[in-house]
Write a protein that binds this DNA or RNA. Structure first.
Ligand SMILES: [Mn+2]
Ligand SMILES: [Mn+2]
Ligand SMILES: [Zn+2]
Ligand SMILES: [Zn+2]
Lengths: 139, 139
DNA sequence: TGCAGTTTTTAGAATTATTCTAAACTCCTT
DNA sequence: AAGGAGTTTAGAATAATTCTAAAAACTGCA
């Protein structure tokens, strides 16, 4: 019995190939930082600082490229909470966020306990893509 | 009987003074564009383009300054929907938004018909500031 | 109405987050 | 191993926003 988390494996090269991405050293290094443990909310700068501290540094341009590719491949989603502050979120399931100001921390909360009733129908000619709820809290 | 909308006046100098801001020509011009009609969602660039088309152009720096001051004074609120895209909203009451991608249009919908139940309590040491709901729709 | 003092405006430089460019490098198939 | 497509990278470029500091305008008071 392999030591894996339910539903995910630590074989990042395979997971990247399955997502249609070549498992390069850089992408595997970033995938490990992102997907080896609990769900995370990272900024490009933050992830770059982390990977720079490792034995296998990656350029900032590659961090941006990779985060965008992971998002486009559905491995991440992007959460915009403040002007010029965009987080990449390893939790791609339905959930919502607490945003703690002024620290800028972002915390998940499950959407299955939350009920949103009475949403109006989308404007003519559009269809629903996603509902984001951001609960802004202050210290 | 004066020709005013319920609850607001078109005497922008007075409204600015009431908000603690000197009624300069630039601020009055921008206030007229923002508050003379229905509620609006504007970007700094968009508002700058509008005022440039008038007889009384205003520098882009002043548009930014003024939008930030109006927001700080409670005359506007700021809505962030996409990376690098922040809207200033003349509707400062409780309400939520449709965001139409890829156009970038933002539409209000009233929050009084919407019920959000089951929100978890804010993290220890924080208290609720605001709940933003963004309904993302696509053409 | 004229001044003085303060606030505001402005052009342009600076900053920040992000994307682009194009040359060097790596991965994968044969 | 070679070839070619895909990827990485440093550095330049772009876009949104803020900062700087000098000029202009507002306001209260003479
Ligand atoms: Mn992006
Ligand atoms: Mn701002
Ligand atoms: Zn999340
Ligand atoms: Zn609105």
């Amino acid at each position: 019995m392999a030591l894996t988390m339910s539903g995910t494996s630590l074989d990042f090269p395979s997971r990247l190939r399955a997502a249609g991405l070549r498992p390069t050293r850089q992408r595997v290094a970033l995938a490990r930082l992102l997907f080896a443990g609990n769900h995370r909310h990272v900024t490009a700068e933050g992830l770059h600082a982390e990977v720079k501290a490792s034995r296998m540094p990656v350029s900032l341009a590659t961090v941006y490229n990779t985060l965008n590719q992971f998002r486009d491949a559905g491995l991440l989603c992007e959460v915009v909470v403040a002007p010029g502050r965009s987080y990449f979120d390893t939790n791609t399931g339905h959930h919502h966020h607490f945003f703690v100001e002024p620290d800028g921390e972002l915390h998940d909360f499950p959407s299955d306990k939350v009920t949103i009733a009475g949403l109006p129908v989308p404007p003519k000619g559009t269809r629903l893509a996603r509902v984001d709820v951001i609960v802004r809290v202050r210290r």
